[in-house]
Design a protein around this nucleic acid. Structure first.
Lengths: 108, 108
DNA sequence: GAAACATATCGACGTTCATCGATATCTGCA
DNA sequence: TGCAGATATCGATGAACGTCGATATGTTTC
């Protein structure tokens, strides 16, 4: 199990941030700092049902299955995805509030 | 000299991204994926004149001068800051359009 | 020109990270 | 119970990164 990331309401542009708040935000953006994870988010966001099965993510990503699983876990830990395991399959869904929090961190 | 980063109009949430576009966005977010750089941006954004001298950034950041210079160069390369060297001093200014581009990448 | 200063670059070091093959875990099915 | 399939974890490897001391570069002042 990995350590969980906390969400934050801080804004980068609204005033000088303390080290602690900066650490929180950096942690969030680090989850977006990899093309594989960006693509995972975009593919899941584009799913008609809002949900995507892990089995449908390996091939379009062009990475090995353990690598995809690793990135998905990272995104879940970062609060950007939720995992719902049903039967043999794992279904992933976006967490819009978390995306919003990061977007708002770039607003004044 | 480091390699320059290009800005992008892609959105993570508006549809499945190709590897190339994802790489562009990830590059942008990677610049935000460190607390030192987050703090630099927030301190500069909070400056009354909109500009901050590098000499005033070392002490509040609590890192060595070469480290601060390194992060500032990274942010300039990422297009998030501009550097204006005047006399002995280097003045840094935010590039709002670049911040906006990254924020919009998190909009639908 | 010399000294003092601000900043950038260099070189090194330890850490973190992305990646993958092998394997373990768990589920559904015959 | 046993097999097949989906997913997560483990262990290893190579690359990228943050950090800093030492040093180079460029500027101001005397």
């Amino acid at each position: 199990m990995r350590t969980k990331t906390q969400r934050s309401c801080s804004s980068v542009l609204a005033g000088a941030l303390a080290e602690h708040d900066a650490e929180q935000l950096a942690q969030g953006f680090r989850a977006l700092a990899d093309p594989a994870r960006i693509r995972l988010l975009s593919i899941i966001a584009a799913a008609p049902t809002g949900e995507a099965c892990a089995c449908d993510l390996v091939e379009p990503l062009g990475r090995a299955q353990p690598t995809v699983s690793h990135h998905l876990s990272l995104l879940v830990d970062a609060g950007l995805l939720t995992r719902s395991k049903r039967g043999r399959w794992a279904w992933y869904r976006l967490v819009p509030e978390r995306v919003d929090a990061l977007r708002n961190a770039l607003s004044r």
